[in-house]
Design a protein around this nucleic acid. Structure first.
Length: 400
DNA sequence: TCTGGGGTCCTAGGACCC
DNA sequence: TCTGGGGTCCTAGGACCC
């Protein structure tokens, strides 16, 4: 007997969250912007209909949005995180086997629900999330994740489905797939779409007809899995237990180009503090990190350097990390370049409860770094925090 | 003037070892 | 001068996702 895998997906999630608290934007074209108000990361249906693309730079569309009386919001991740928790807990009232896949999506294993009750259950969940949290969702269900995603796409794009679509209710699925573009498949992104098109494969139906070995060669094992899932095989299991994170990153673009190493160091210290906060929230320590400095790739200054640094033992101490990172920044930095972004990625995370004891711990060389022994650092940091706060957050958050 | 941030997985190639 | 084969580990780069 086939599994019943569902995907419950919040519609235009960030916009929908804003609309719960700003009903004035309902019915108007609405977008939510990324950090720095850089680009569009969520769009209402009205905004999509007016041709606003995902990831489009805000400054290029600002005038257009003014003309069309858009509601524009800077992103408010605390709000979205909280709304996400509420949506997920409503879902969990009706299903035990839930994988929270992202802030706005959950895979659910509905296999234990009787065939005849399936649609009824899904419709009920959809209306309960709407009633209790105020967020509209779409639901797709099929024998695996890939087909669930594809049916949820149909649930969204075809009004007739009213937001809930089951693979088993689709008549002549295979024929329908010749009309669905290959890029709609979960797991097939821009590059692979281009590659497949160059082989004359434009529709999902054509992709399904390809030879397995060719698919594997052209893409990789996951490309093949995607193809097999379209043919009803079950390759990507629903992950009921949340897996431990493998990396935790803290990176930001600057409000303007930076040229001095002191500025970069201040920024990096800031990001380390932020990253350490995340380490503590996740109850892990790091024994290795990667730092990077990068230029503005949009301005023909797309340089990038990075360095991996191994710590003597797992840590979640900002200054300890900083003392190791600082000398390498000097190494990576070059005074004839402009920098637009930097950051730190913590790798090799170990849960705090299994901390190892190192028998021979040598004193940390890098504690000798001068910046760490006098108090100049803290003053600088305070100054830069103020500065960053004004340039990042002192931006009007609503334009009507 | 202004173009996000944070993840995962796979693969090829080099280093190194026996 | 000649110069095997196999295994593991690491890293960089490239693809994908939201």
């Amino acid at each position: 007997m086939s599994r019943k895998i569902g995907i419950i997906d919040c519609n235009n999630f960030y916009v929908s969250c804003e609309r719960v608290f700003n009903p004035i934007s309902i019915g108007k074209p609405t977008v939510v912007l990324s950090n720095n108000d850089g680009c569009v990361i969520a769009r209402s249906q009205e905004a999509k209909d007016l041709g606003i693309k995902m990831g489009e730079p805000f400054f290029q569309k600002r005038e257009f949005m003014d003309q069309h009386r858009f509601c524009v919001y800077s992103s408010n991740y605390n709000l979205y995180g909280d709304m996400s928790d509420r949506v997920m807990s409503v879902i969990k009232e009706y299903a035990n086997e839930v994988e929270v896949y992202s802030i706005d999506e959950a895979f659910v294993d509905f296999s234990n629900i009787q065939d005849e009750k399936l649609m009824e259950t899904l419709i009920h969940i959809k209306s309960e999330v709407q009633r209790k949290v105020g967020i509209p969702v779409s639901i797709g269900v099929g024998p695996n994740k890939t087909l669930a995603k594809l049916t949820s796409h149909m649930a969204k794009s075809e009004v007739g489905y009213k937001g809930v679509c089951s693979y088993w209710e689709l008549v002549n699925f295979r024929n329908m797939m010749y009309k669905v573009d290959i890029s709609e498949v979960w797991g097939i992104g821009r590059k692979w779409t281009k590659k497949l098109r160059s082989y004359g494969v434009d529709s999902v139906g054509q992709f399904m007809n390809m030879n397995d070995m060719i698919v594997k060669k052209l893409m990789n094992i996951n490309g093949l899995r995607t193809k097999l899932e379209l043919g009803e095989m079950y390759c990507y299991p629903v992950q009921l237990k949340s897996k431990l994170k493998k990396n935790i990153a803290s990176t930001r673009s600057f409000g303007a180009d930076l040229t001095q190493i002191e500025q970069l160091q201040e920024a990096m210290y800031h990001y380390i503090q932020n990253g350490v906060k995340k380490l503590k929230e996740n109850e892990v320590s790091t024994s290795r990190c990667t730092i990077f400095l990068a230029g503005n790739k949009h301005k023909n200054q797309g340089h990038y350097t990075s360095k991996s640094i191994t710590f003597q033992e797992p840590t979640q101490n900002t200054d300890e990390i900083w003392s190791q990172v600082c000398p390498y920044m000097v190494e990576l930095y070059s005074n004839d370049k402009k920098y637009k972004k930097c950051g730190i990625i913590f790798n090799e995370l170990t849960p705090d409860n299994v901390k190892q004891i190192t028998l021979f711990t040598e004193p940390l060389e890098s504690f000798e770094v001068p910046v760490n022994v006098d108090k100049k650092w803290e003053m600088k940091q305070e100054y830069i925090t103020q500065k960053y706060t004004t340039s990042w957050e002192d931006i009007p958050s609503v334009f009507v």
